[in-house]
Simulated scan of single mutants.
Amino acid sequence: MLDIKAVKKVTVTEQIMEQIAGIITSGQLKPGDQLPNERDLAERFNVTRGRVREALRALSLVGLLTIKAGEGSFVNEQQAPFSPETITWMFYSEIHNLDEVYAARKLIESEVYLLAAGRATQDEQDHLLLILDALVQAKNKQDPAEFLDLLDQFDIYMGEICGNRIYAKLMQTVVHLRRETSLKLLKVPGAVESSTEIRSSLMLAIQSKDKKRIEDSIHAFFEKSKLFYDNIIGKS
């Protein structure tokens, strides 16, 4: 039996969220476990189903739960990726500030690239090369969304292999946060080719295992990126 207490009719949704989050973080519910249905939870909390639904929805936005239509609510794995909707909700007021998006990208992506470069196994390098090959094939298709999906795969995988779980989550955040801007960037003449070139250069540096070369490649990566950011800022 889950340890659920009826809540007062003040900040009801927040109290429900707090109790469910506590149940999950205390280990009473494990990753993959299904929560009781809305009706059962409403009865246990002594609230309406609407309040329960609001709380579950909010917990799904912050990554604790996954809500599956027709099935119910399930506890996420600890390392479950954030959804794009979560990122938009968290940063909706900052997402159009291109200077800040660029600054966040440079800070987080640079550290992730550097850590991943120092740790990447041969199998992991081979996987990155497969994504890079797909990028090369995609650059002539005139489909920025498809090309960006591959860029996102490359960078999220970098986060996964960097060895730091917090950085991996931050990389997921940045990838979603930058998406709208990146679609604009990829429409600037030369941007697709540059994106392929600078990641190819980064992979050569990683394969060389030369830290100075890796650092120089990352620096050049963001120097070129800044030129394209300045281009779209100037047009806005």
Rank of each mutant, 00 (worst) to 15 (best):
V10Y: 12
T11Y: 09
V12H: 00
V12R: 00
T13F: 03
Q15Y: 06
I20V: 15
A21D: 08
A21N: 00
A21S: 13
G22L: 09
G27C: 00
G27I: 03
P31T: 04
D33P: 12
P36D: 09
R44V: 06
N46T: 15
T48C: 06
V52E: 00
E54C: 05
R57Q: 14
A58N: 15
S60K: 07
V62G: 00
G63F: 01
G63P: 12
T66H: 06
T66V: 07
T66G: 06
I67Y: 11
E71Q: 02
F74T: 02
V75R: 04
A80Q: 08
P81D: 05
S83T: 15
T86Y: 04
T86E: 01
W89I: 04
E94D: 10
H96R: 10
E100R: 14
V101E: 01
V101S: 08
Y102S: 06
A104D: 10
I108P: 10
E109Q: 13
E111P: 01
E111A: 01
V112N: 02
G118N: 12
L129E: 15
L129M: 09
A134Y: 00
A134L: 02
Q137N: 10
K141I: 00
Q142A: 04
E146T: 01
L148Q: 09
L150T: 05
Y157A: 01
M158C: 13
E160K: 09
I166E: 13
Y167L: 15
A168M: 11
T173F: 04
P189E: 01
T196S: 10
I198C: 05
R199C: 03
S201P: 05
L202D: 01
I206K: 00
Q207T: 00
S208C: 03
K211I: 15
I214T: 14
D216L: 15
D216A: 14
E223Q: 15
K224F: 14
S225D: 15
L227Q: 15
F228G: 03
Y229R: 03
D230T: 11
D230K: 14
G234H: 06
